[in-house]
Amino acid sequence: MKADFTVDASGLTCPMPIVKTKKAMNNLEGGQVLEVLATDKGSIADIQAWAESTGHQYLGTKEDGEVLKHYIRKASEGEEKEEKKYDKTIDNNGLKSKLNEDITIIDVREPAEYAFGHIPGALSIPMGELEERLNEIEKDKDVYVVCRTGNRSDMAAQKLSEKGYHVINVVPGMSEWDGPIEKSDS
C-alpha cells in the first residue's frame, strides 16, 4: 500500500500509537497519506476515534502478521467546503445507472483510498499524476471523474476538459457511494 509517510509505533502501548500518529501528522501536507505501524490491538479502535475527533480521514487497516497497518489521510484546509466550479456533474445514482455502459471512470483519490474501496473498473489516477498519465485515458469515451467528496474530481474535471475530454464530475463521490465496490491489495 502506497503511503507518503510511515510512522512505526509497533511494540508500544496506549497512548503511544496515537501520540506518534499525531506528531507524524504534523509533517504531512493536506491530502497526503500516513501509514501507522502498531502492534497494540486497541489501536484499531483508537486510530479511528482519533481520526474522527481530529477531522482526518481514516482509510482502513491491514493486518500483516502481528503488525497492524493503519492508513490515514490528512485533511486539507477547507476540504469540506463545497466550491464546485465545473458545471457538468452527475450524482452517484446517475453514475450507478451507467455502470454497464461503455464509459471511463477515473478515481483521482490517493492509491491507499482507492485500495480500500473503489467502483469496479475505475482507473486509479491520483490527482497529482493526472497530467503525466493523460495518455491512459481514451478520448472518444465519456470520462466520469470521482473522488471522495467531489472537490478533487472537480479540479480534475476542469483539467481534463481543457485537454479536450468529454468529462463529467461525480458528486458527491465515494463518501456516499452505495453501489458496487471492489478492493485491491496495492
Binding site: C14, P15, I18, V19, T21, K22, A49, W50, S53, T54
Partner: peptide, 12 residues
C-alpha cells in the same frame, strides 16, 4: 497521564 496525553494528541 494516559488520558491526558491521548486527549492532547487528539488536539484537545
Amino acid at each position: 497521564f494516559n488520558i491526558a496525553t491521548a486527549a492532547a494528541a487528539a488536539d484537545g
